[in-house]
Design a binder for these strands. Structure first.
Length: 188
DNA sequence: GGAGGGATTGGCT
DNA sequence: GCCAATCCCTCCG
């Protein structure tokens, strides 16, 4: 079980170590195959301009869920690390509760159940009610990766600032990513 | 008090 | 590839 000490570390270390970890929400989830790191010095981060009502959880204790709504439609799930930093969970390899994922996501193929931050939140049933919940107890369950995985990094997706910062981490070669990594780079 | 915009997705050209 | 959908949060007046 991953709890506060795991998340009370530099956000890049946490991001790398989350690749291959298992995430479930109310028994629905899978292996984390794609994340992105954000911190307070980063113009792409919600925490860049300091604490506000929306991002308050990012400045709270490590090991909690920061959930926000994007484009008025979708939800995105982050894991809070040290104050002002968080890891956006972007894609899972579905492993648990697949029938419920399919119900929530409609008639998509398995590869597309959790291949993006909004899709993942929809498949797991995560919304603003879950903002601020601790990650080390139900309905959340986060378990460490049981062995090492080939990790690749690259630029983050969809942002309009900080595009040059290669803080996207993926499980190299996974077919469950939101987008292929290009060009492929070695992990730090 | 109000306008502008976003760490996305899915559908259409 | 392009673009609309749709909610607050943030910032400015």
């Amino acid at each position: 079980m991953l709890d506060r000490p795991f998340f009370d570390r530099p956000v890049l270390d946490v991001s790398r170590d989350l690749i291959g970890a298992f995430l479930a929400f109310d028994g629905v989830g899978g292996r984390i195959v794609e994340v992105e790191a954000y911190d307070e010095a980063d113009p792409a981060s919600h925490s860049f301009r300091g604490p506000t009502p929306r991002n308050a959880v990012m400045f709270g204790p490590p090991g909690h869920a920061y959930v926000y709504k994007i484009y008025g439609i979708h939800f995105c799930l982050n894991f809070v690390c040290r104050p002002g930093s968080a890891v956006l969970i972007r894609a899972l390899e579905p492993q648990a509760g697949l029938p419920r994922m399919h119900e929530r996501r409609g008639g998509v193929v398995e590869k597309q159940l959790c291949s993006g931050p909004g899709k993942l939140a929809q498949a797991l049933g995560i919304n603003l009610d879950h903002n601020g919940l601790a990650l080390d107890r139900p309905p959340f369950l986060v378990r460490p990766a049981d062995d090492s995985h080939p990790i690749a990094t690259g630029p983050r997706i969809g942002i309009t600032k900080g595009m040059e910062t290669p803080w996207r981490f993926v499980l190299a070669g996974s077919p469950f990513l939101s987008k292929p990594l290009s060009p492929e780079r070695k992990a730090l």
